[in-house]
Amino acid sequence: DVAEQLTPVLLDGLREETLQLESKLEDSSSSCAVDVSTMWWEAAGCRELCVVTACESSVSLWKPLASDCWGKVYTWQLGEIPVIQIVPLPDTCNLVCIALGDLEIGEIRLLLYSSENDSFKQSLVKTGNIKAVLGLKDRRLVSSSRTVQEQQVEIVSFSETRRSKDGQTLMPPEETVLAFAEVEGMRDALLGTTAVNSIVVWNLKTGQLLKKMHVGYSYPASICHRAYSDSGLLFVVLSHPHAKESESCGNPAFRVIAFNPKTARSTGVMFSSLPPGHAGRYLEGDVKDASAAAVLTSGAVAVWDLLLGRCTALLPPPPAGSWALARWATTGACLLAGQRDGTVCLYRY
């Protein structure tokens, strides 16, 4: 019965893309799962894609064992400040960051494995009133933080074992930056979304704030998930956690908008809404390439093809509970769906 209820629902008009349950990771010791992610772990010359799970007081690393099972490799114990989120560092090995805090992020820590002396460590990266954080390529991390007077947007970089001493600051906009996205294919471009629904673009090399563009009033509190430049336009994938249902667009979870960075004009390219008849608003989600996944207020997880603007699969809520987390693995077409009790299901998409 349980397996049946964890099976994705195929929606009308579905093509071959579906979700297949591959394995299940159960953590009996987890008090309250807060996040899940993946990271590369290399030990004794063997490199594997591992799962990282976080509960409020600890973060665990899981490696794949034989026959679709997972074994816990190590658990980092944290202090009294609760873990809020895992911050993966793309294209790195043996490194992951975490954000800790009460209502807001107050601290970022680096968790690492040193293959040289086969040991697991943790170190403090940054403290402050941190509003947004994102791991960047080339072992870097960007964050926005606020003091009463000003906002700081800072990039820190890491060696294999620690944070580098010198950070780099980017010119802050007046408004608070609430999310970041790297601009794919443009090594020196970084994008952010702000508290007043603007898109800002930086030059990472020079720290310049290049452009501020307003998203529009229809969908407040836009959060950027992905950005890429094509044919002179900047395409941005946004989610709208506070959007209201409209007749024309249904219940939009994600939108793709094309901006002309020269003129700051924009146009909507695609909406990704729930199919008619399915209730539930967007709670939280993740985007990788053209695939988006989101946990809905109904307790289900929905998956969309962003280019088609179509929902391609729906995971119904698990028995006696609901999904709390939906994340794409950093490599491979794999969706991690997590429940608050620490159970994580891995689906092949």
Partner: peptide, 23 residues
């Protein structure tokens, strides 16, 4: 979308905005 909706498009927008922006 058409160019008229979005205004003149430049393939080198990043370099051009970097040259125009404050240091």
């Amino acid at each position: 979308c058409s160019e008229s909706d979005l205004g003149p498009i430049s393939l080198n927008w990043f370099e051009e905005l970097s040259a125009e922006a404050l240091p």
